[in-house]
């Protein structure tokens, strides 16, 4: 009986284990506070969005987690270990696609593997099975400038995923796309996530995008960034596009909107 109970607790613990935890992050640039005591967490296989006004410090939070920007105060835990200020523990996709113009799509997406020391042939072989899922088949030997905006973003996403399938940080991946492509990419991303189940930390300032994609949303204030509210999105998955016009969806949207302004 006790054993069963223990096992249940253990399994429960495993199922919702915390992948990433940020505690009391504080950051100043030239004496000006940018991030003011922010704490949040990300569960395994969860999709969590940070939403906030432009310039509030969202990208800075990601830079801190990725260990690129040294932080003033606070700690970053990954799988329970203190990795504050350390690089290479999360997959990070920047606001810009940052594809290398001089590399073909296949080599751009295989870049993380090549950096890890794999031979080009091997790395290409490992990327190939994912090209279809990411909608890049037939374009693997093209250069980035020959791709459409949506395709470039998908290539950058695949590269991010090839680095680590564990924790993925996505900083406004669809920010530069037109509305139609953007909607398509969101639906596509949902499908991909159903398949590969990563743990995603996402940035956007588009409320609909946040609600449509996320399990949980942190609403940030204007600079200096503070967490105003944590919103659980209990919309069922898998989600169809039509969900964005449902009453429940709009209620959540309205709630966040009133909180943001």
């Amino acid at each position: 009986m006790l054993r069963l109970l223990l096992r249940m607790i253990f399994c429960q613990e495993r199922r919702i284990s915390i992948k990433l935890k940020a505690e009391h992050l504080k950051q100043k640039y030239e004496g000006m506070p940018i991030i003011d005591d922010i704490s949040f967490y990300l569960n395994k296989n969860e999709f969590v969005t940070l939403i906030g006004p432009s310039g509030c410090g969202k990208s800075t939070i990601f830079n801190i987690i990725a260990g690129i920007v040294p932080l003033d105060e606070g700690k970053v835990f990954i799988d329970g270990k203190d990795y504050t200020g350390e690089q290479g523990h999360v997959s990070y996709m920047y606001q810009k696609d940052l594809l290398l113009p001089w590399k073909r799509v296949i080599d751009n997406t295989a870049l993380p593997l090549i950096i890890k020391g794999e031979k080009v042939g091997e790395a290409r072989k490992k990327v190939t099975p994912y090209l279809e899922l990411f909608g890049l088949q037939g374009f693997e030997y093209k250069y980035p400038f020959q791709l459409s905006g949506g395709m470039r973003q998908r290539a950058a996403l695949l590269r991010t995923y090839m680095f680590s399938r564990d924790i993925v940080l996505l900083d406004e991946p669809f920010g530069g796309l037109d509305a139609i492509t953007r909607a398509k990419m969101q639906t596509w991303l949902l499908q991909v996530i159903e398949k590969i189940k990563p743990s995603v930390l996402f940035i956007t300032h588009d409320i609909e995008e946040a609600v449509y994609l996320s399990d949980r949303i942190y609403v940030l204030s204007a600079r200096p960034a503070k967490i105003k509210e944590e919103v659980q999105i209990s919309l069922p998955r898998p989600r169809e596009r039509e969900i964005v016009i449902s009453a429940q969806f709009n209620r959540i949207k309205k709630h966040i909107l009133s909180n943001l302004s």
Binding site: I68, Q87, G88, Y94, L98, P112, I115, K116, F163
Partner: peptide, 10 residues
Amino acid sequence: DLLNLMKSMK
């Protein structure tokens, strides 16, 4: 940013 990206990939 590209430099930072390369660094974040170790």
